[in-house]
């Protein structure tokens, strides 16, 4: 057996072409679960990030959150959430949201706080209200940084959703976990490959989005990976 045989077995299995275990269906599940978790996390984290970034208060929350979010094991959170709340989609979403929210909050706050103070003063000086300064000046300036945070969160959610298949969540993780449980390597490897492709595709989409939100003059400066982003 080699890679080509494994993948051929995986992609040509009738179960993987139609029905509940179809590849298309699993990809859709994975995207829906990840999208839901990301959306809930954004609703919770972005307003707080805007507030912290604009007022400069509560930055210690940002520092603490970054540290804690990095140290928590995803598998532990997922298994505990399901034991405590039962196997339903909401229970599994809780740890996904909990892991997606901190990078979003941190990136939003950093982006807003990073707006040039002189530009902010100038905006106040020509008579804009705080609300107008925040949404008209700071938010557009913060978009590239904030989107980098969304990318970090999205990639993290895709990875965690894979792990969460262990506690019964659908999506591509099903192939990986079910294949491991039944010692069916083609299924496991096929699932893993699809997860990798999904993660890379997500990276590319966000790289493009970030490029589009950069002011034209900045687009020339390619962004190198930074320690802050690596989460």
């Amino acid at each position: 057996m080699n890679w080509l045989n494994w993948l051929n077995t995986f992609f040509s299995a009738p179960d993987h072409r139609s029905g509940p275990d179809a590849i298309v269906h699993r990809i859709a599940e994975h995207l829906v679960i990840s999208g839901e978790a990301l959306a809930i996390a954004a609703v919770l984290a972005v307003p707080v990030g805007l507030l912290i970034g604009y007022t400069g208060r509560g930055t210690f929350v940002v520092t603490a959150l970054t540290g804690v979010a990095r140290a928590l094991p995803t598998l532990g959170l997922v298994t505990l959430a399901v034991l405590l709340a039962g196997v339903d989609d909401l229970a599994v979403l809780i740890p996904l949201v909990a892991l997606a929210a901190p990078p979003l909050l941190v990136a939003t706050a950093e982006g807003i706080a990073g707006t040039d103070p002189e530009v902010r003063d100038a905006a106040r000086g020509i008579g804009l209200t705080h609300r107008q300064v925040l949404f008209g000046v700071c938010v557009p300036a913060a978009l590239p940084t904030a989107l980098a945070g969304v990318r970090t969160s999205a990639v993290q959610v895709i990875a965690t959703a894979t792990v969460a298949a262990y506690v019964g969540l659908g999506g591509l993780g099903r192939y990986v976990i079910d294949g491991l449980a039944t010692r069916n390597f083609p299924t496991t490897l096929g699932g893993a490959l699809l997860v990798v492709l999904l993660a890379v595709a997500t990276q590319l989409v966000f790289a493009l989005l970030i490029r589009l939100t950069l002011p034209p003059g900045e687009r020339v400066r390619r962004s190198a990976p930074s320690t802050k982003e690596a989460l």
Binding site: V155, I158, A159, T162, V163, G173, V176, L180, T188, L189, G191, A192, L193, V195, V196, A199, V200, T202, Q203, P225, A230
Partner: peptide, 12 residues
């Protein structure tokens, strides 16, 4: 590489 989900890489 950093963005690749760990479980998928272990399995591969």
């Amino acid at each position: 590489v950093y963005a690749l989900p760990s479980l998928a890489v272990f399995v591969v």
